[in-house]
């Protein structure tokens, strides 16, 4: 599904060139659950944006489901993101003056899903993400950090995307709630065959995936199989 060849990314600000990614090569098959791990500033989020067709690499090539991402127009990229990808951003990016339900159903609006189905699917996604129902009609800026994170996860799930890209999805959660979320991802992966790319700087979190790609300074340090640390009792928080 994901095929990266020698991906490089650099930013130029005036005379200063910041090289963030230096020749990243790997591929991810459909149905895999991969963790990308690395210290802060190693380029994880940058890589995720490229994988999610939000950004384009400065060198190398990236194919998503056989599409050469660098050859597509903005609108074609938008269509791919809409139909195939669910993002959980590190900084959530919720619409603060909209309700939780509205935030979660936003991707469905652009996908042209009729209003009645939107409600149902948003509710289902929120349940999987473990947000208590009494918060669903709150404005998203009235939530705690952990609650916002779960809304962000619900929004990523709602479109039933083939690929879920989650940037530090447990970063703001306590261990217990974090495990609930990780359990949700495991379930989505094993039961619904979603491809999941989990980005984290914690080994503990990465160990819940089947494969860990370790990056440092924009390069792959290690790419190894992992025995998933299974969350058994996935009771909703």
């Amino acid at each position: 599904m994901i095929d990266c060849k020698n991906i490089g990314k650099s930013y130029v600000n005036g005379d200063v060139e910041t090289v963030v990614l230096k020749g990243i090569t790997f591929s991810i098959k459909s149905g895999e659950f991969v963790a990308i791990m690395g210290p802060s500033g190693s380029g994880k989020s940058t890589l995720m944006h490229i994988l999610g067709a939000l950004d384009t690499p400065t060198s190398g090539s990236y194919h998503l489901d056989g599409h050469d991402i660098s050859k597509l127009s903005d609108d074609e990229l938008a269509e791919i993101r809409r139909n195939k990808i669910g993002f959980v951003f590190q900084s959530f990016n919720l619409l603060s003056r909209s309700t939780v339900l509205r935030n979660v159903s936003l991707p469905l609006i652009y996908a042209g899903v009729p209003p009645i189905q939107r409600e149902e699917r948003a509710a289902a996604a929120l349940t999987s993400a473990g947000l208590p129902e009494d918060r669903w009609n709150h404005l998203s800026n009235q939530l705690s950090g952990g609650q916002m994170q779960r809304v962000a996860i619900a929004r990523a799930l709602v479109n039933n995307p083939a690929l879920i890209l989650a940037d530090e999805p447990t970063g703001n959660l306590d261990t217990k709630t974090g495990e609930v979320v990780l359990g949700t991802f495991q379930e989505l992966n094993s039961e619904h065959k979603h491809t999941i790319v989990l980005i984290t700087h914690e080994l503990y979190v990465a160990e819940h995936a089947d494969r860990i790609i370790h990056i440092q300074d924009g390069m792959i340090l290690e790419d190894k199989k992992n025995v998933r640390k299974l969350i058994v009792h996935n009771h909703k928080a």
């Binding site: 999610g52 609108d75 938008a78 936003l106």
Partner: peptide
Amino acid sequence: TREIGLRKAIGAKKSD
């Protein structure tokens, strides 16, 4: 701006 970025990220086209 951030809201527009988010909308585009989750699949809004230019025309949307």
